[in-house]
Design a protein around this nucleic acid. Structure first.
Lengths: 125, 125
DNA sequence: GCATCTATTGCAAGTTACTTGCAACAAGGC
DNA sequence: GCCTTGTTGCAAGTAACTTGCAATAGATGC
């Protein structure tokens, strides 16, 4: 994968922002630095990053599908339904283990996705 | 909401099948009994059922969005990535509690969605 | 049962977000 | 610098989902 200007901008933002971003949001970011960049370019960069395993997709129901840097430790998200901010949670915070699912169902778990929505502490005030 | 023939077919299938179904699948079922039924009719019936709270949407990533009868006890699913069959899991099977999330993050949880994918016991053989 | 009212339907067209073909372009190796 | 080939911008193409509208059919009251 070539280090084109747009690809570097997309990769850097995903890596440093460390939260899921939509292609729209990535596109806006790239255009701020390289105004001629097309949506389809960002779309394809993200596809390449995903194929290379450097990024993975996250679905936030009403908020659409988003992409997050894969180098982060495994975690899930809780998104504030008022302000949209997200906080990370790991399996231990949730009491989750694949072992437990295995015991309950006999399934060998490949993949799990946990998405939570609620009101964050600051919006509760 | 009127008890039209198509709406009764959709509602009955969702209630008795008790597993998430796509609009496509519901449409095929309705057409088997009422061949003239349009996709958009099923689409709107499901929308009405959802608005009435009798059905809710479930997202199964690659398998698309599906709808499930709401009268069932709260649960999640693990879907076999080979045969597509799903098994229900409740929060206790997962060790999950909103209280725990509250303690870890301070968020008031509105809604949570947990979807698992793996290999079912019979496909493991 | 029959008339009436209005939700519901079928059809076709519209919208949206996502995908792709292709010729021009530019990153990286030599 | 020059060439090779991955990338880009543009515009057009999909597929799935939505909607407008005139015709239809549940439901209600008589």
């Amino acid at each position: 994968m070539r280090n084109t200007r747009a690809a570097v901008l997309v990769g850097d933002l995903l890596r440093t922002y460390a939260k899921p971003l939509s292609i729209q949001e990535l596109h806006e970011h790239v255009r701020a630095h390289l105004p001629s960049t097309a949506y389809s370019t960002v779309y394809r960069i993200v596809g390449r990053l995903e194929a290379a395993g450097r990024v993975h997709r996250v679905d936030w129901r009403e908020r659409g599908s988003r992409y997050e840097w894969s180098g982060l430790p495994h975690h899930h998200h809780i998104v504030c339904s008022l302000c949209g901010r997200s906080v990370d949670l790991d399996d231990a915070d949730l009491g989750f283990s694949e072992e437990r699912v295995r015991a309950a169902t006999g399934f060998l778990v490949d993949h799990h996705s946990i998405e939570l929505e609620g009101i964050c502490p600051s919006c509760q005030r």
